[in-house]
Amino acid sequence: MKIVVLVKPVPDTYGDRVLSLETGLADRAASETVLDEITERALEAVIRHAEESAKSGAGEVEVVAMTMAPADSQSTLRKALAMGAASAVHIADERLAGADLVRTAEVLAAALRRAGADLIVAGNGSTDGSGGVMPSMLAELLELPAATRLETIEITADAVRGTRETDGGTMTVTAALPAVVSVTERMPDPRFPALKGIMGAKKKPLEVVALDDLSAELEGLGVALDETASARSIMVAATQRPAREAGEIITDDGTAGERIAAFLADRRLA
């Protein structure tokens, strides 16, 4: 079985993240690039499944980490390899800078079709974008079922099963393979790569894929190779929100509760 985990390099949230007010795009030089936490957890869950599967003789599971990201974010894929992925695919092409959601989905779908995965695992969202729509977009383009936002995941030879927190309750869902799933931060804590893993990662295959390498698959999806001239959505303005100013800070003198109640009443919030 081949499982592709979609991982995402994101600006580290422990520093200030900067959006270029000229282009409306992330200023990648302004902050350190790290693997998004949820995709690290997704990777951990899949690597554990592969290890257990090998141990119990249930069959070999090949774990591939894939990302579409600028050329300089390769260190994050090395980390995925050090954690235990067998190989990595890095889709990098200058013509993809600023790609919108549909374009991103088209290119990832083409690369996934090329890789030929039985199961595609993504995070349910990332810290640099709160869309969470990519897994269902990929499922639609690849004509696969999607089980999104799984809090637990159970992978068998022909299906994937789990529970998801949805609007108003908990749902148990199952999907026949091949399928797309997204998982939440309830997945296990990611391991710290051991020195052996870090050294080993240098020898593992890391394939860099450009748009031209995906021409057959893009054509199969009915998509133009280069869409840079015909974006379907554009950012028309970007402004930095003025820093929220601290208001009044008081130290409790024994009447703070009363003081807060008065504050709420003044603002008609009580």
Binding site: D100, L101, V102, A105, E106, G129, S130, G131, G132, V133, M134, P135, S136, M137, L138, A139, E140, L141, A146, T148, R149, R164, E165, T166, D167, V223, R232, S233
Partner: peptide, 23 residues
């Protein structure tokens, strides 16, 4: 932008190849 709503919007945008503005 609920759980099921965002999933449906993603599928629609992918199917129609239409612009999608999330959240």
């Amino acid at each position: 932008h609920s759980i099921e709503g965002s999933d449906a919007a993603g599928r629609l945008a992918a199917r129609l190849r239409a612009p999608l503005a999330v959240d």
